[in-house]
Amino acid sequence: MTYEEQSSTSPVLTASLKRKMLMGAAIGLVLIGTFLLTAGEPNPAWGKFWRIRPLIVVPLAGAMAGVFHHFVEQYLAGGGLGSRLAVIVLSLLGYLIAFWLGSVMGLNGTYWN
């Protein structure tokens, strides 16, 4: 007699997760891009391509905030209005923290001294 094991694991990188990562990265890119365009004249000592690092790091932090939102939503799924409100509050707080840390890492040595 043979035994077949049924795997019930779901793929980690789902379409919903990809969409949330892209949304988080897009928001981060727009925010840091707006800041960099309106920040004024840069210090000549920063080099020619100093804007590349914040334009990469901040959207990556936004994408990780999207991952955080996805897993918080999965963990608190199935509840009522209170659960949905908790997901929104936790996700917003997580995004603000991720954006702040991404901004610090991206702008370190230039605007963030």
Rank of each mutant, 00 (worst) to 15 (best):
T2M: 15
E4T: 11
E4A: 15
E4D: 15
Q6L: 15
Q6D: 12
S7Q: 15
T9W: 14
S10A: 00
P11V: 02
L13S: 10
A15V: 13
L17C: 03
M21E: 05
M21P: 02
L22E: 06
G24E: 01
A26V: 00
I27Q: 06
I27D: 02
I27E: 02
V30A: 08
V30E: 06
V30P: 07
L31C: 07
T34P: 00
F35M: 05
L36G: 00
L37Y: 09
L37Q: 08
T38M: 12
A39P: 08
A39I: 06
A39V: 06
G40L: 12
P42Y: 09
P44D: 06
A45E: 08
W46F: 01
R51S: 01
R51I: 00
L55G: 04
I56L: 10
V57E: 01
V57G: 02
P59Q: 08
P59H: 09
L60F: 09
L60K: 13
A61N: 04
A63P: 00
M64E: 02
A65Q: 04
V67Q: 06
V67T: 02
F68W: 03
H69K: 09
H69I: 05
H70A: 06
F71A: 07
V72R: 07
E73A: 11
L76S: 08
L76C: 06
G80E: 11
G80P: 13
G82L: 13
L85K: 15
A86N: 10
A86S: 13
V87I: 15
I88L: 14
I88P: 10
I88Y: 15
V89M: 09
L90K: 07
L90Y: 09
L90Q: 08
L92N: 10
L93E: 06
I97T: 09
F99V: 11
G102N: 00
S103R: 02
S103P: 05
V104W: 00
M105D: 03
L107Q: 07
N108V: 12
G109V: 03
Y111F: 13
Y111C: 10
W112M: 14
N113H: 03
N113C: 13
